[in-house]
């Protein structure tokens, strides 16, 4: 009986050898392979979250559109600016802020979720921070449709202004990645960090000009100067919406990025201990 079953699955297939093992070369381990794996895992996350719906991941877009629409109308009324002016401003700010805060909040639990991969399959821990970053980058790619549509119909920027915003956006993304590595590592080692991060993110959202415009604070501008989020928003938002390059904010944001990058580097060296933390 046994030889029959064996024969059945070893019928001379080009990819299977005599013992029924697949003849496939493994990709060599390394950073490139890790990045590819992280991206693949992220795509899977997004695809499977919306697997049983027709419009699929565009639910994310719809959700964002709904939120932006409702809050946009209310807050433009509260801050007495025209809705037409406020909606694109709020949409682009909110979508990018969600990317930063979503990645950071998610990074606090990502290693715990991947415990088995790290402890039993020996995958390096940083792969899962990359996965988290890529997942939110994919969410952003869906969400960005909302501000793009608003810009197209309501105006507010030009093609060249969007190009001018790219350096600022790169800094913003760099900060997001480094922040998630630092915060994620810290929160995995010390479990009481996660709720702190969550409330800090909420605080930053409300205290920074995302749902309101900076000029609403006239007379108390110091509230903006000492808030790093303001500068991180300004580096891409000023060129995109106002056509000016805020060099001061660039300097502050780059310094902020440098500090975070060195902390992230330190976190990466500590991550070899991650199997003990999980």
């Amino acid at each position: 009986m046994l030889p029959q079953t064996r024969d059945a699955d070893t019928i001379s297939s080009p990819i299977v050898d005599d013992n029924g093992f697949l003849k496939v070369e493994k990709s060599p381990p390394g950073v490139v392979n890790d990045i590819k794996l992280a991206f693949f895992l992220a795509v899977y996350d997004v695809r499977h979250r919306y697997a049983r719906s027709i419009i699929g991941p565009f639910w994310i877009t719809l959700q964002t559109a709904f939120f932006v629409g409702c809050i946009g109308f209310v807050f433009s009324a509260i801050s007495a600016v025209s809705t037409r002016d406020f909606l694109p401003y709020f949409a682009i700010s909110f979508v990018l802020w969600s990317f930063l805060s979503g990645t950071t909040n998610n990074s606090t639990t990502t290693l715990l979720d991947a415990g088995g991969f790290i402890k039993d399959r020996g995958l390096p821990a940083y792969v899962f921070f990359l996965q988290c970053f890529f997942r939110h980058l994919l969410f952003l790619a869906h969400n960005i449709a909302v501000p793009i549509l608003l810009f197209v119909f309501l105006g507010g920027t030009t093609f060249f202004r969007v190009i001018a915003a790219i350096p600022g956006l790169v800094i913003f993304a760099g900060v997001t990645l480094c922040l998630s590595l630092v915060v994620g590592s810290l929160a995995t080692r010390y479990r009481d960090v996660q709720p702190v991060v969550e409330s800090l993110m909420n605080l930053a959202f409300l205290a920074s000009p995302i749902m309101w415009k900076p000029d609403l604070l006239s007379g108390r501008e110091f509230l903006l100067h000492y808030n790093p989020v303001v500068h991180l928003l300004a580096v891409w938002r000023d060129p995109m919406l106002n056509g000016v390059m805020p060099w001061g904010s660039f300097a502050i944001s780059l310094m902020f990025l440098a500090v975070l990058a060195s902390l992230a580097w330190y976190a990466l060296t500590q991550l070899r201990n991650a199997p003990f933390w999980i």
Partner: peptide, 16 residues
């Protein structure tokens, strides 16, 4: 398969 560093081609998945 991806986790093992193997590209999951249709042939490979079929055979598994």
């Amino acid at each position: 398969l991806r986790v093992d560093g193997i590209k999951p081609t249709a042939d490979v998945v079929d055979s598994i």
